[in-house]
Amino acid sequence: MRLNHLDFHVPDITATADFLIRHFGLKLKDMRGQNGLAILEDDTRLEIVLSHAIAKFGTADQVEMGRKTYHIGFILPERADVDAVHAGLAAAGADLSGPPVAMRGGWLFYCTAPGNILVESGWRPG
């Protein structure tokens, strides 16, 4: 069994999709309607689905709740890659936790993507 997808409820699907595509190398697989639903894919075919909050699942997204109730993490092949992603995000004015730091045996930092999604970027020695 393998994980197939994650679905995040966000208020601005296009802004969140653009952020994840630009800074984390995801590819747009499908966009349904104008800002209706986006399916992004990584290089292992894991999909991240971005959609609006659905009534049967609670009607609120993380922005409306004012909380970060989950986070996603990207693992990078080299420590220098973490620094490069951080530099790109900093240049774009992203909401960063600070510079990368040694933590839990690796090198990582956090940022907040549009939609109030906490994103971890890190490297761990092989």
Score class of each variant (00 low, 15 high):
V82D: 00
T69N: 11
M65D: 12
V101D: 08
E120V: 04
C111L: 04
P99C: 02
H71P: 10
E64H: 06
V63Y: 06
H71L: 06
P99M: 03
G73P: 07
D83E: 09
V119W: 03
G73V: 08
I117F: 01
V101Q: 13
G93H: 08
D61V: 04
Y110K: 06
H71K: 05
L89C: 11
I72M: 14
L89E: 07
A80S: 14
G58M: 07
P77A: 09
V101H: 08
G106A: 08
G105P: 03
A94D: 02
G106Q: 04
L76T: 05
G105W: 02
R79F: 09
V119I: 14
R104T: 12
I75P: 01
S121V: 15
S97Q: 08
H86D: 00
E120S: 04
D81S: 08
T112S: 11
T69Q: 06
L108E: 12
A90D: 12
E78I: 01
A84R: 15
G105I: 05
A60C: 10
C111D: 02
A102I: 14
M65R: 15
D81F: 02
L76M: 10
W107L: 01
G105E: 02
I72T: 12
D81Q: 02
M65N: 12
N116H: 11
S121A: 14
E78C: 07
C111A: 15
A84H: 10
L96D: 05
P99G: 11
G98L: 01
E78H: 15
Y70P: 00
A94V: 05
T59C: 06
G115T: 07
T112G: 04
L76G: 01
A60P: 00
A60H: 13
L108I: 12
E120L: 04
V119T: 04
V63F: 03
A92N: 03
A84P: 06
G115W: 05
L89A: 13
D81C: 04
A113G: 04
A87N: 10
L108T: 14
D83S: 13
D95T: 14
L76S: 05
D83I: 07
H86R: 02
P114E: 02
R79A: 14
G58R: 05
L76H: 12
R79M: 12
A87D: 12
I72W: 06
K68I: 15
G106F: 06
I72Q: 09
A90W: 01
D81R: 01
V82P: 00
A113T: 06
V119L: 03
G115D: 01
F109S: 00
D95V: 12
L96G: 10
H86L: 00
A80V: 10
V63N: 02
G73C: 10
T59E: 13
S97F: 00
A102L: 12
F74V: 13
A87Y: 05
I75T: 13
T112H: 11
A84T: 15
V82G: 01
S97D: 12
D61K: 00
G93A: 02
L76I: 03
A80E: 13
T69A: 14
G106T: 03
Y70A: 15
A60L: 13
L118R: 12
A94C: 05
